[in-house]
Amino acid sequence: MDKNAPRRALKAAFPYTLPILTGYMFLGIAYGILMNKKGFGVGWTAISSITIFAGAMQYVSLTLLTAPFNPVYTLVLTLMVNARHVFYGISMLERYKNSGRLKIPTIFFMADEAFSINCSVNPPKGVDGGWFYFWVSLLNYLYWVIYGCIGNLIGNLIPFETKGLDFVLTALFVVIFINQWQEQKKHTAALVGLLCSFLCLVIFKAENFMIPSMLAILTSLLFMRGKIEGEVS
């Protein structure tokens, strides 16, 4: 492998992470501010972001950290909130296969946003895939850690109204959804994802719909394997 491969991959990866850089501005800073309000300084904020690194989970942790010590409940809740990572892992088995020593950090940094980019973008020609996936994931990680600390230290001083900025991430997923849609001739798998999640949201409500959604998606995909397998190239 040539020496410039990491740098070339970084150049190719950075633009893809701009929506994350913007979206985390709100989510990360808001997290830092909330930690501050609950009485946790920048040290605890940094430790949480560096070791846990999962946005939704860290918002949940605000309640766990201000309640009596309950390790079993903490572990069960963590596994439930983050169960979707199992889907990401299965999706990335092939793509991360040749990442070598970058594989472990790339998997550790596998957040929703890094996953959605890495599973849908093919690294440009001449760019090493392992490094490309690694940079997308590492940048994603650094943005989250840094914004959290900034929010904790000076969050209350931010002069402009950031309400709604987190929509960047919704828009990111919508745009990737459209890109994927246009790549494929038939759309059963995409529709299965939308429909199962939507139905489970209606039935189980916002707090509890993710696990049922994942089970419904898994069942539907397995049940319709014969039909869907030929659709995806």
Partner: peptide, 12 residues
């Protein structure tokens, strides 16, 4: 196939 389904799930 999961990446296609998961993106819909993330939007929801």
């Amino acid at each position: 196939v999961l990446p296609y389904s998961v993106m819909g799930m993330l939007i929801v």
